[in-house]
């Protein structure tokens, strides 16, 4: 005997985007932990990079006598944020569209904003965990001093938050460009180039000025700069191209990326490859 399915006699309005965003955050996290390859890659990559670079350049101090590991932590923390936001979201979204997961969300009536919020929620949680592991390794294995005082931790928090959200939005935007294979390859290549341009691997002020100018268009350069202001001693500000940490500018650039990017995504977002 089968149960009888009937149309709903009364129908309350479907739940708001925020409710669906929260449900999707839980779902995305559950799917994330059930994909061991993704967990390992997201968490291990920045740590492996830190270990490699800190070992190879162990004796080389950076401008102002800052130990290499301390200088590099700023760049690799920023890279980690881009990895868990921009790269993870862009790749996953293109795959979900190709598999038809997004087509299902569309016919169920998911608001795009609810879907975006789910991605952002998942990104924030994984970013926090990844940074916690990275900082612990840096502090214990390489004696990198942790930020002293609430002010630096506050800067760390808003820079990380802004970077993760900007990266999420950028990932959503990029994933609309092509097939999942094209997007996957494109994102990885773009991320590597951006890391070189943005001063993750080299001292930013020592890069050619055209590279600095290109990098300034994208969020990663500002994210790295914000992280330097958190992890480097005050004296290191002298080596900055602008002569200051430019916190106002960092906040502005990241906010513009989030707000403008979100507006663009809401208009260009597609559940399917063709309509």
């Amino acid at each position: 005997m089968t149960a009888v399915l009937t149309p709903a006699p009364t129908r309350p309005a479907p739940p708001p985007a925020l409710t669906i965003g929260l449900a999707r955050t839980a779902l995305e996290l559950r799917l994330f932990v059930r994909d061991p390859a993704q967990v390992v890659f997201s968490f291990a990559y920045p740590i492996v990079m830190l270990v490699i670079f800190a070992s190879v350049f162990a004796g080389e101090d950076r401008p102002g006598g800052v130990p290499f590991a301390q200088y590099f932590l700023a760049g690799i923390a920023a890279t980690g944020i881009m990895l868990t936001s921009f790269q993870a979201v862009g790749t996953a979204l293109a795959e979900e569209r190709e598999r038809g997961d997004l087509a299902r969300l569309q016919v169920i009536g998911t608001p795009p904003l609810g879907y975006f919020l789910g991605k952002a929620g998942q990104v924030l949680v994984t970013t926090v965990l990844q940074l916690a592991v990275l900082l612990t390794v840096a502090a214990t294995a390489y004696d990198v001093p942790m930020p002293d005082g609430a002010g630096r931790w506050l800067t760390f928090a808003w820079v990380a938050l802004g970077g993760a959200l900007a990266g999420t939005v950028l990932g959503i935007a990029v994933a609309s460009v092509g097939s999942s294979r094209a997007v996957g390859n494109g994102i990885s290549a773009f991320a590597v180039v951006l890391q070189f341009f943005s001063g993750v691997f080299f001292v930013f002020s020592e890069l050619p000025s055209w590279m600095q100018e290109v990098a300034a268009v994208f969020p990663l350069k500002w994210l790295v700069q914000g992280m330097r202001s958190v992890f480097l001693p005050d004296a290191a500000v002298a080596a900055e191209p602008a002569g200051s940490w430019e916190h106002g500018m960092i906040a502005l650039v990241l906010a513009v990326w989030v707000v403008v990017g979100l507006a663009v995504c809401s208009r260009t977002f597609r559940w399917r490859r063709t309509a």
Binding site: L27, R30, L31, R34, D35, E96, R99, G100, D101, A103, R104, V107
Partner: peptide, 10 residues
């Protein structure tokens, strides 16, 4: 629909 994904890991 004819084919839509449902998230395999759940």
């Amino acid at each position: 629909a004819q084919s839509t994904g449902v998230g395999d890991a759940l």
